[in-house]
Design a protein around this nucleic acid. Structure first.
Length: 853
RNA sequence: GGGGAAUUAGCUCAGUUGGCUAGAGCGCACGAUUCACAUUCGUGAGGCCACAGGUUCGAGCCCUGUAUUCCCCACCA
């Protein structure tokens, strides 16, 4: 088939992908050592962003490379119901259509969101296909699939039985806009400027007052104590006495608690147990009352009539005004402190008392830490292991309840007559159940999404049920974003060790964030979001894939580099044209066999491709994607296209050329799967219809003659010098190259003329003249007139100065006794050789200049 | 308050255990070109590797400090 002049990716990509999928190449082969990766499931209802493109691409490179190496590869795709994320989107639609979550039952909402997600799921999957992701679609797992829910319930039951799950009234992080609670790590803390108000509470049992400092005066309506440090001399006498709370006039006690920082504010703290986690703990230690004064809408409740129903901020103003009026305010100061926000809508997180399900993570974390300290998991970059150990070492209980209908219902029921009597039961589709004559009402909350995705590796591989894919657990590589270290990676490790006794993956690789071209974080509000699909349609999938990994190192947030994507596109076109040209030269249908190198260039290209393959292997084993891609790029562009193909124009070896092209396509395939497969298919060299590039084998070491390869390197150096020197000469004349007895030149006359455009003749002489090619170390001259040589004198002098400088440096090094004694022998020898060569070079240059003078 | 990362060419970034002339892509300059590719070819310019000390025969890399930037964590009322 005749190929067009330019590669047009969009024309080929969809058919190539369909072909792969139909061929079954994405499914584990069942042959070879298992190699597995699970996909961090993208949101089922969302679009892929540029970060996904990076993430998926890195995994796909590994999958394709390992598959070609003969491994039994499982790259298992997933789709995430993304409980809260999806719910936010859906609830916005509800509001837009004038309804609200309160108009429907949980079942109704669940099925509505199900349909909503189901209608959009295909988009995400199409985008993964557009990126060429070679995952095993037959094994796709949705986080709401039955097997996921079953496992989640089993795990929950097991944790419950082990006493690691408890339900209790605790302070939770509550978003009053979304009306759900969050885990601690989901809260986004930001430093904000605020005021620290000093409020005087009159003493009841003694004369005087006690002044407390607070950033939240409105919560004083719910104060149930004042706390001071037990060692604080200022307040020692007051501990145990009572004060009167301004505005509400309730009486509260002064307690002593270690938590109080004597040096902060006045050293006295108001205690509002229902709306501050620390105060809650103080309250527990001192058996204080708890008064809820803020409801789930963020409005004041259980407060004097004047404050009822106000928002927190309104109440704050009013309380301050009221205190001012009653002269209980003792001034204020500006302060900057950290305030929790909803990561989705920015609403200030309200700490509220709620009955929720919590997981005691400490015992799980301890076991996980043991595994991590044994280095059971390799981390890239390695310092991340310390970060995760540090996090696990101070882990707190995990609130897994979410007050949203979209998610896996928590399988628990409460005795209608006894709020303390909870039982585990999976009949979550029934509002009430009867157990031994007692009626139980179901829990309406759902699990935090991360509770289910935290079990991903053993769920998708069916490890607990010893399913067909269980040979893939533990998985080989978990490649994900650095921001998920706590949220996902740590939980997968804890839950996996808890349920299976094993680590979930052998290696973790963290990629960094993709920022915009000016290294600014991408965000919808800034309008600087780069859509990967637009890149695919503009430059092609391969171009995006090559561009996005270029110059990227693990865990480093880096700018998106459009230039690198363009370079990727150009590379694909280069490869395309290499193939067009090679096909033309070859003519018929070659049999691609082991390479049988004949010419110097043949031996040399075998060596270059051997070396490239070995380097790519090492680099990918160490997850140095960018370097591996670079190695491949230069092997093909520089060695194959610029040298070997140019040589082929003069002396062609059809079998060799076929092997070179074949090998190039293989080496490039993990990085640029579409263009390589397109070429492979259109060449049709491999008769077997099932023989696709994706399923073919990775190149192996081939034999060549080292001496011949090195001879070609020398020849190459001569060409380079000739080009360089003639480029420096004035004008654009053609020159004759003169040489004395030199077989390398004699045998490759034609090649020399072809490769050095400015040389149109090569002549054997007995006596050289003109300008000597001094650095080649051969007896070679450019036959130029004395006049031209004279004009060139300045260049020669400059070069001579450079060489002298280099000689001086080498001599100084070799005169240093410590260097001779301590540096490795081969380096010293190298320096000596180098010095000798430079001296010879200098001599030749001097000789040239002598003639001119 | 604690921790981490970064600082290398005009831009975006590589640089594995220290090894001698620090690389890539894009951009720039000069030149080439009917005959695979202008998404091309050839050649080149451009770097006190943030700064100051130290260790070493030798430092972009290791150590100490400084500056700047970014990120994460934190129950700072």
């Amino acid at each position: 088939m005749k190929l067009a002049k330019q590669y047009t990716p969009n024309e080929f990509e969809p058919t190539i992908y369909a072909m792969w999928e139909q061929s079954g190449a994405f499914q584990p082969s069942g042959k070879g050592d298992p190699y597995s990766m699970v996909m961090p499931p993208p949101n089922a209802n969302g679009n892929l962003h540029i970060g996904h493109a990076l993430d998926m691409n890195l995994k796909d490179i590994l999958a394709r490379w390992r598959r070609m190496q003969g491994r039994d590869v499982a790259f298992i795709p997933g789709a995430d119901h993304a409980g809260f994320e999806t719910w936010v989107v859906y609830e916005r639609r509800l509001h837009e259509s004038g309804s609200s979550r309160f108009d429907f039952t949980r079942e109704q909402l669940y099925s509505q969101v199900w349909d909503f997600v189901d209608a959009r799921r295909g988009d995400m999957e199409l985008q993964l296909r557009a990126l060429g992701i070679s995952c095993s679609w037959d094994d796709l797992v949705f986080t709401l699939d039955e097997k996921v829910i079953d496992t989640v319930y089993d795990t929950f039951k097991s944790l419950w039985d082990d006493g690691l799950v408890y339900r209790g009234e605790r302070i939770v992080n509550y978003c009053t806009t979304h009306q759900t609670s969050f885990a601690d790590i989901e809260v986004e803390h930001k430093n904000e400027k605020s005021k620290l108000w000093n409020i005087a509470y009159p003493l009841l049992d003694k004369r005087g007052e006690i002044v407390v400092a607070t950033t939240r005066p409105e919560t004083m309506l719910g104060d149930t104590a004042i706390a001071v440090h037990p060692d604080d001399e200022r307040y020692k006498d007051l501990v145990g006495t009572r004060v009167q709370l301004p505005i509400t006039n309730r009486e509260i006690e002064i307690v002593a608690d270690e938590h109080v920082d004597m040096s902060f504010g006045t050293g006295a703290v108001k205690v509002t147990p229902a709306h501050d986690p620390n105060d809650f703990e103080i309250a527990q230690r001192h058996q204080l009352n708890v008064i809820n004064i803020i409801d789930e809408q963020g409005k004041m409740t259980n407060v004097p009539a004047a404050f009822m129903g106000l928002t927190v901020l309104e109440a704050r103003k009013k309380v301050v005004a009221s205190l001012q009026a009653s002269e209980d305010l003792r001034g204020s100061e500006d302060i900057e402190h950290s305030v929790g926000h909803c990561y989705k809508c920015g609403t200030i997180i309200e700490p509220l008392m709620k009955d929720q399900w919590f997981l005691k993570l400490e015992p799980l974390a301890k076991e996980a830490i043991v595994k991590l300290k044994e280095h059971a998991i390799d981390f890239y970059p390695s310092q991340k292991v310390n970060e995760i150990i540090a996090y696990l070492g101070q882990i707190r209980d995990w609130n897994i309840s979410r007050q949203i209908p979209w998610g896996i219902p928590i399988p628990a029921f409460v005795n209608v007559d006894d709020p303390k009597d909870w039982i585990f039961d999976t009949r979550v589709d029934q509002e009430t159940i009867d157990v031994d004559g007692t009626t139980y009402k179901r829990e309406e909350d759902t699990f935090d999404t991360w509770f289910s995705s935290g079990q991903w590796p053993y769920v998708v591989t069916d490890y607990l049920s010893k399913g067909e894919l269980s040979r893939f657990f533990p998985t080989d590589v978990m490649e994900t974003g650095g921001d998920l270290l706590r949220q996902w990676v740590s939980r997968m490790i804890m839950l996996s060790v808890y349920r299976t006794g094993e680590i979930p993956f052998k290696t973790v690789y963290f990629h960094g964030m993709v920022n915009d071209e000016h290294n600014q974080k991408m965000s919808k509000s800034k309008g600087n979001v780069i859509n990967p699909m637009e890149m695919v349609s503009e430059f092609g999938s391969d171009a995006l894939r090559m561009g996005i990994i270029s110059g990227r190192s693990p865990s480093q947030n880096q700018a998106f580099n459009r230039g690198a994507v363009i370079a990727g596109r150009n590379f694909c076109n280069k490869l395309w044209n290499v193939s067009r040209f090679a096909e033309d030269l070859i003519g018929g249908q070659p049999e691609v066999t082991k390479p049988m190198p004949k010419s110097l260039a043949d031996h040399w290209i075998v060596r270059q491709l051997n070396e490239a393959r070995a380097a790519i292997d090492t680099q990918l084993e160490q997850f140095r994607f960018s370097e591996a891609s670079d190695t491949m790029y230069h092997a093909i562009w520089d060695d194959v296209a610029d040298w070997y193909l140019e040589v082929s124009k003069v002396e062609k070896n059809t079998e060799m050329l076929a092997w070179v092209l074949d090998t190039s396509l293989k080496l490039a395939h993990p990085f640029a799967p579409f263009v390589t497969e397109t070429i492979w298919q259109s060449l049709g060299w491999h008769d077997d219809a099932t023989d696709n590039l994706i399923s073919t084998t990775w190149p192996v070491d081939e034999t060549y003659d080292e001496i011949a390869a090195t001879e070609f390197s020398r020849f190459k150096n001569l060409v380079t010098e000739a080009r360089f020197v003639t480029a420096e000469l004035p004008g654009n004349d053609k020159y004759t190259l003169l040489y004395m007895d030199d077989a390398l030149i004699e045998d490759n006359e034609g090649l020399l003329r072809h490769l050095v455009r400015s040389v149109d003749a090569v002549k054997h002489v007995d006596q050289g003249k003109g300008l000597r090619l001094a650095s080649s170390g051969r007896d070679v001259w450019l036959d130029i007139s004395e006049e031209t040589l004279y004009e060139h004198q300045a260049n020669l002098e400059r070069r001579l100065a450079e060489v002298h400088k280099s000689i001086k440096a080498l001599e100084a090094r070799l005169e240093n006794k410590s260097y001779i004694d301590k540096a490795p022998e081969h380096l010293v020898a190298e320096s000596r050789d180098k010095l000798a060569a430079e001296k010879e070079h200098a001599e030749r240059l001097e000789h040239e200049l002598e003639v001119l003078r």
